[in-house]
Amino acid sequence: MAVKEEVIEILNTIIGEDISDQMDEDFFDNGLLDSMATVELLLDLESKFDIQAPVSEFDRNEWNTPNKVVAKVESLIG
């Protein structure tokens, strides 16, 4: 549970609005996240969870909704 909340908190800070009610919305489609924000997200996740998330692992089809990000982080934590 903790992972999910922490990811939401990171996303909220980067996007600048509360996304907890749109966990399955594609944030690239609706323009909430751009390349710049994506890098911020990767860096924040790296430092928060101590995981390796290099840019080339970032496949936009696998990271495009808050829920998918949570799943990715959980799988990277192992």
Partner: peptide, 26 residues
């Protein structure tokens, strides 16, 4: 260009904290 230049360049700048401002970086 986005994936191999822009994002990597931004990643490097932010990771090394060369530039503070997000706007200037982008």
């Amino acid at each position: 260009f986005r994936d191999y230049i822009f994002m990597r360049f931004v990643f490097l700048i932010m990771k090394k904290k060369w530039i503070k401002s997000r706007v200037t970086t982008s």
